[in-house]
């Protein structure tokens, strides 16, 4: 690449002197207005520096920036917008606080607020145990399904969230635990094995029909008080339905044996006092709306 300026024969114009395999470039002048606009943009940029925050400066031991004559930064805008949103949220929460669950449920706008608020509160507080999709896991109930240990009506769910389950610090917490029948000597090993066969027989899976028949008697004596004679469970003591397809601690023979022998007593914290009333209502509606919520019975509707 040579750099000697040369004159182009065809046009008579000086070239830049750059030569790429015989291709040269004419050295054309810029239009003057272009140059003027270039200078104007430089002036414009100076005006920008003066008007808007621009230069970083070291002041009082920290980096800050020149504020500009406009006296306003995009950060102020963000802060103002955040404040505005926080205020709007306050107002929304206050409305939820005042309304009762039934009212919120019937008001599409309030319900939308509550569900959105509930979804975010669920992610923050409940998801670590129940899963981000509320799908649960061994020992942590799936909240999407239609099986409720402590009841699936709005009032039940609110009660559970507020006071927790076996949460000793809360006097109103839900109590009732599965005893450790074998470990604590309540039942002998053979009785436990029999009752496990009986429980399996409820879903047609018993291996040993005779053992199951014996187990039925054990069940009646030791289990029916909580789980009911029909083994369909009772929500006031949190005893699960043993005849359905849902097993909190697993439905295999060894899982059931483990539950009977060593007991089960999962704990859920009481959220009353930790979360405000509006958030608890939101969570209640959210969980109820996950698909398994049970309607209030007419008698209890006026609570």
């Amino acid at each position: 690449m040579s750099t000697t300026p040369d004159r182009d024969e065809v046009t008579g114009i000086q070239t830049t002197g750059h030569d790429w395999d015989g291709i040269t470039e004419l050295d054309q002048p810029l239009p003057r207005w272009w140059l003027i606009i270039f200078y104007l943009t430089i002036i414009g940029s100076v005006l920008f520096w003066v008007w808007y925050p621009s230069w970083p400066v070291w002041m009082d031991g920290e980096w800050t920036f020149t504020r500009g004559l406009a006296g306003k930064t995009a950060r102020d805008d963000v802060a103002a917008e955040m404040a505005q949103r926080a205020a709007a949220r306050e107002a929304d929460l206050a409305r939820l606080e005042k309304a009762d669950l039934g009212t919120i449920r019937r008001d599409p706008e309030l319900l939308r607020l509550a569900l959105a608020n509930g979804a975010s509160a669920f992610g923050d507080n409940c998801a670590p145990c129940h899963g981000s999709g509320a799908e649960g896991g061994p020992g942590f109930p799936n909240l999407n399904d239609d099986d409720w240990l402590w009841g699936g009506r709005l009032s039940d769910i609110e009660q559970t969230i507020t006071h927790g389950i076996r949460w000793e610090a809360d006097p109103e917490t839900r109590l009732g635990a599965m005893p450790a029948h074998l470990r604590d000597g309540l039942l002998g090993r053979a009785d436990v094995a029999d009752v496990v066969q009986f429980v399996l027989s409820l879903s047609g899976r018993a291996r040993d029909a005779e053992a199951a028949a014996r187990g039925a008697l054990v069940f009646e004596a030791s289990c029916a008080a909580c789980h009911g004679l029909d083994a369909k469970g009772q929500t006031f003591v949190g005893a699960p339905n043993l005849s359905d397809d849902i097993w909190l601690y697993g439905g295999r023979e060894e899982d059931i044996f483990e539950s009977v022998a060593n007991g089960r007593a999962g704990v859920m914290p009481a959220w009353g006092g930790r979360l405000d009333a509006a958030t608890i209502k939101s969570l209640t509606l959210y969980v109820h709306g996950l698909g398994g919520g049970v309607e209030e019975e007419p008698a209890a509707a006026g609570e």
């Binding site: 899963g131 981000s132 999709g133 399904d145 239609d146 099986d147 339905n241 359905d244 397809d245 398994g292």
Partner: peptide, 17 residues
């Protein structure tokens, strides 16, 4: 719905959202 993909109901049927 992706999470959960399906839900088992107490009567053994499966629910999707």
């Amino acid at each position: 719905d992706r999470n959960p993909l399906f839900v088992r109901l107490s009567d053994g049927s499966i629910r999707n959202g």
